[in-house]
Design a protein around this nucleic acid. Structure first.
Lengths: 229, 229
DNA sequence: GCGATAAAAGTAAATAATACTTTTAAATAA
DNA sequence: TTATTTAAAAGTATTATTTACTTTTATCGC
């Protein structure tokens, strides 16, 4: 029998969260980045982060950061993974948990974003990021793609009412590929996850495209395959 | 412009890893659990865990724990998620990262397992676990199922040489369902991920079943769908 | 050689994916 | 007021995959 080590004798760690905030606007998938305000790497582009407090979960810490920056609560977010290379932050040993979040750019608070010196960047054209934040973004995008391939992800990125064309364009931008309009429509409608409204968007075509809304999450059949990887 | 908080002013956290160790033996998926050796909950069944040291990554901490208990290195492991409810451990605020690992039970060091007062349990019949360890196991199983549905998982759980029947039985036990022998064989062979050896296992049938080995990981085509969820 | 056993191979129907074409609705120009 | 244009929406034919089976094969023990 071998003994375990006591709680009190252990070294403690600085714990942070970093948020990869995806948004969607005018046919483009975007990422909210901000200019770092303290040394090291002050002034360079980074993810939005924050410390984990003793009385909260890491998810709550991420929600707190998200609320502070966007003014939004109840945002969809998912843990990416723990980043813990001892030298990842030259300022000291910080273990950071990366989360990715999905928001509708139109619905967030732009003044707060300005206040924090943040900016939306197209994911297809990102600046260099500090530390391992580039890796965090790459893994978040991979997770988002995986999720989008077996789940409908529009709910958090699109406005409440959207057209099938807008949903397809969102998928085009997530996967950086063009989906066939007819087949995409057929596949999506077969999932029976949305309701067609009696309203049309005439901005894109003369005929006009029907608006749809998502059915409540509770009515959704899960684990439906949308894109075949 | 809003200022960020300095590193030095922050509260630190105890950081641990907990390992959900899956093994496979005689048609059954099993989990390695051990009797906790310190208060609180001393003597109750728990996952195998350890503290994260300042000079290592959380993955290295999990590898260290796995080596200590099984004698094996280079084990397949994957992060499940961070468990950080403030009251999850009655002994104090401990943030724990759960990992799940896959090993071939035959190849591990049984003396070490005994030394640590550990025991293999069938996943279909687990004892109550301390803290949130039951939740860690449930989420690990879900992750393993997801992985097994788009990847071949036998490589880490089966011996080097195995029959298609053994691989199918592994899948049966992971998904708690019976896969059709003919269709399973057809699907698996179509992936072209294994090599048939000139050797048969005659233990299970009079005709005998050919042994197979996995092709090197580098030759594998990725993201093949095995089970349709 | 014969029956028993599970492996291995084969088959036919149903379902789904893919690459297209055609029709529709509404705005605009001739 | 009719033709033209646009993208939405519907439809279609081919191919590929999945599913539920049946048949054949190899080998053991009698």
């Amino acid at each position: 029998m071998v003994s375990q080590q006591e709680y009190g004798l252990q070294e403690k760690h600085l714990l942070a969260v970093d948020c990869v905030i995806f948004g969607y606007e005018r046919g483009e998938l975007k990422l909210l980045l901000f200019k770092r305000q303290l040394e090291p790497e002050k002034g360079n582009w980074s993810l939005i982060g924050g410390w984990v407090e003793p009385n909260e979960t890491v998810e709550q810490a991420a929600e707190r950061v998200l609320l502070k920056i966007t003014g939004l609560s109840r945002i969809f977010q998912e843990e990416v993974r723990v980043f813990s290379a001892p030298e990842r932050d030259p300022g000291g040993r910080v273990v950071s948990i990366a989360f990715y979040a999905l928001i509708d750019i139109k619905s967030h608070n732009k003044e707060l974003v300005n206040l924090y010196d943040a900016k939306w960047w197209p994911v297809s054209n990102l600046p260099d990021l500090i530390f391992d934040h580039g890796q965090m973004v790459a893994e978040s995008l991979a997770k988002l793609r995986k999720k989008a391939s077996y789940d409908l992800v529009g709910r958090d990125l699109l406005p409440d009412e959207f057209t099938l064309t807008q949903l397809r364009q969102l998928y085009n931008s997530i996967f950086s590929q063009e989906f066939d309009p007819g087949n995409f429509r057929k596949k999506i409608l077969s999932l029976d996850a949305m309701v067609r409204l009696d309203k049309k968007d005439t901005g894109e075509s003369k005929k006009g495209a029907f608006y749809y809304t998502f059915k409540p999450e509770s009515e959704m059949n899960v684990a439906i395959r949308i894109i075949n990887l």
